[in-house]
Every structure is written in structure tokens, then in C-alpha cells.
């Protein structure tokens, strides 16, 4: 089997970075996220392949928080599109975990299937190679297995497996992966190493039946109760690797300007505000309910699997301790005859 020796890691990242933007899990100040390898300050920033995961998800690589779509010039009733900003620069996501790789699968389904291809997303996605880091040590808030994900088999072009020893097993999974592996073939070794055993999960979730049960729970009193302490900020939706709601707005200076897309959050009042002045989700209860129904019911109905990937970030970051695992448990226990 192919082995990436740990002392070759930087060489390989440097080599890959010659032809593509390589995003790696990295510490930054008190935080961590996926950042371009080229921008790393080795004095203060650490490559975090050995950590469980990073705090800020890699969502923004394929789906930037703000992206300029096209520039426009208006003359009377006519609008001319001057330039379209599709970004097809090659990029590599190195060291992503199975939960976050699943989130990319979710976004692929949303942006590329069911009759419409989002050209902006597609331009980036077609030029992105994913090298995932298989997980063997689930953290205290990890529950990907409960959401139907095998942390040791992430959906990726290449999978690396930390043998805890000197190297990573390098497993090429797709044609795109093969092209990349070929470029660094001389830096990989041929050796037999054994992948570790997956350690047991500390947080267990039984998702089976939840989507089905939620169908009859739209008016259930549970939402009022569970949402009482939600402060209605957007942290959960913005640290979530799979939340993908966006807004498209325009910025104009006189008759020139551009359209851009930016992340939006179902936790915001304005998200569901209607042009006529109404708002079908006037309070925290309705917004809170929508978030969990989208994650656990609507997405499953449309795509066959839930929109939660069990990464646990929302559990860590919620200022008031709202916990999706607890919500799933409460839904399972709820009496639907109420």
C-alpha cells in the first residue's frame, strides 16, 4: 500500500500548493479552521491533522460566505451583465473529516441535482479535490455514526489514515484522486501499515424513524418548550458544515454595481420576511422548529438522508447549551397524540 510518511507531509503540501490552493486544518489565534497552506505562519499557526477537527467548518471553501456573482450596468430599462465571476481555480481540501465531507455531499445534492445546476458552485466543485482524513477517535460531541456516516470511510477522492506511527495510509478512491496521487507519486512510499480500530462513540444517536415521526409534529408543544432558551442568533447555522441557505442581493453605485450571494440563516427574522410585510416565522419558536425540521425531516424527505452530519459544532458553540442530540432524543420520546 501507499504510505505518506509524516516527515514528507510539508513537502507534499508545498508541492500540491504549486498548482492549487491547498486548504488545511490549521490553528489561528484562539480559533481553528481550514486555511490556505500558503498563508500559514509557521511561528504561530499549527497544522491540525492530529486534532479531532477544526472549530470553523470548511464550508466556505466550496460555498463562500460572500461571493460576487456578476457585475451589471443599467441603462434605462436595460441591464447589461458585464462580467460573471465564476471561480474555477483548482483547489484541494486536505485533511477534511468524514462529517465535513458528508456536508459537501449534501451541498452537491442541493446545488447540482434535482433539475438545476448552480454554475458558481459547480465551477468551484469541479475543480476541487478532496483528501479526507479518516477518523478513529470520536470526540465528546461527535455523533456522525448516528447520522449514518462511517467516520473511517469519508466520501473523498483520496483517504488518508493516520496509523499513529510514522505515516498515513494513502488510499486513492476516484479518477480525480488518481491524477493528484500521480503528481506526488515519487514522494509516497510502498509499505504495509495497519489502520487503527475505530474507538467507541461517547455520544450515541438513534436517528431511525425520526424523519417519519417529525411529519406529525409540526404543531407539537415540544417546539415552544425546546426553543424557550434559544437566543436566536445564527451561530449554529454558521458553524454548521451543511447549513447552506443563502441570500442574493445587489450593491449599486448609480447605474453600476454587482450581485452577490451571501450566507443567510433561518434564525434571522429577516430571512422569512415577505415583501408584503408579513412573516410566517415571527418568533424564535417557528425559526427554531424550521431549523430542526430542515435538518432532520425535510432534507431526508428530499434526498434520503439527514442534513445533520453529527460533527457536533453547534453543540460546542451554542451560548445557551442547545443540543441537537437532546432534541433528537426528545422528539423520539415525544407523545404525538398531544
Amino acid at each position: 500500500m501507499k504510505i505518506l510518511n509524516k516527515n514528507q507531509l510539508e513537502t507534499i503540501l508545498n508541492k500540491l500548493a504549486e498548482e492549487a490552493e491547498v486548504f488545511v486544518p490549521m490553528s489561528k489565534g484562539n480559533s481553528s479552521g481550514f486555511y490556505s497552506w500558503k498563508t500559514r505562519n509557521p511561528e504561530t499557526e499549527r497544522l491540525m491533522l492530529d486534532a479531532l477537527n477544526v472549530y470553523l467548518s470548511p464550508k466556505n471553501i466550496g460555498f463562500p460566505q460572500t461571493e460576487k456573482m456578476y457585475s451589471i450596468k443599467q441603462s434605462g430599462p436595460d441591464v447589461e451583465i458585464k462580467e460573471t465571476f465564476e471561480d474555477s481555480d483548482p483547489r484541494i481540501i486536505f485533511g477534511i473529516r468524514a462529517c465535513d465531507a458528508r456536508a459537501i455531499t449534501c451541498m452537491d445534492d442541493v446545488f447540482l441535482t434535482r433539475g438545476y445546476e448552480d454554475s458558481f458552485y459547480k465551477a468551484r466543485r469541479d475543480n476541487t479535490t478532496i483528501i479526507a482524513n479518516a477518523c478513529y477517535n470520536p470526540g465528546p460531541n461527535c455523533f456522525c455514526a448516528g447520522m449514518g456516516i462511517d467516520p473511517t470511510e469519508p466520501n473523498a477522492d483520496i483517504i488518508i489514515r493516520d496509523t499513529g506511527d510514522t505515516g498515513y495510509i494513502w488510499e486513492t478512491k476516484t479518477t480525480q484522486g488518481e491524477q493528484l496521487s500521480a503528481r506526488i507519486a515519487d514522494l509516497l512510499e510502498e509499505k504495509e501499515l495497519k489502520a487503527p480500530e475505530l474507538k467507541p462513540f461517547k455520544t450515541n444517536v438513534e436517528y431511525a424513524g425520526v424523519a417519519e415521526k417529525l411529519k406529525s409534529m409540526f404543531e407539537h408543544p415540544i417546539w415552544e418548550e425546546l426553543s424557550q432558551t434559544c437566543q436566536n442568533c445564527g451561530i449554529c447555522t454558521y458553524v454548521c458544515p451543511s447549513c447552506h441557505c443563502f441570500d442574493i442581493q445587489v450593491k449599486m453605485w448609480g447605474d453600476e454595481g454587482y450581485r452577490f450571494r451571501c450566507w443567510d440563516s433561518c434564525m434571522y427574522t429577516e430571512y422569512s420576511a415577505e415583501a408584503g410585510g408579513g412573516n410566517p416565522r415571527p418568533t424564535t419558536k417557528e425559526r427554531f422548529r424550521n431549523r430542526f425540521l430542515h435538518k432532520l425531516e425535510f432534507f431526508t424527505e428530499r434526498y434520503g438522508y439527514p442534513l445533520c452530519t453529527g460533527c457536533g459544532r453547534c453543540i460546542v458553540a451554542c451560548p445557551t447549551g442547545i443540543n441537537i442530540v437532546n432534541i433528537i432524543d426528545q422528539v423520539k420520546e415525544a407523545n404525538v397524540d398531544v
Partner: peptide
Amino acid sequence: DPLKAMKINSGLLQDI
């Protein structure tokens, strides 16, 4: 701060 405690225990951050 319970939030900080959550972050420390999360495995997602270092050096806090």
C-alpha cells in the same frame, strides 16, 4: 464560562 469549557473539551481547539 461553560462555553469556554465546551470549547476546551471539544477537541476542536488547542491551547486554551
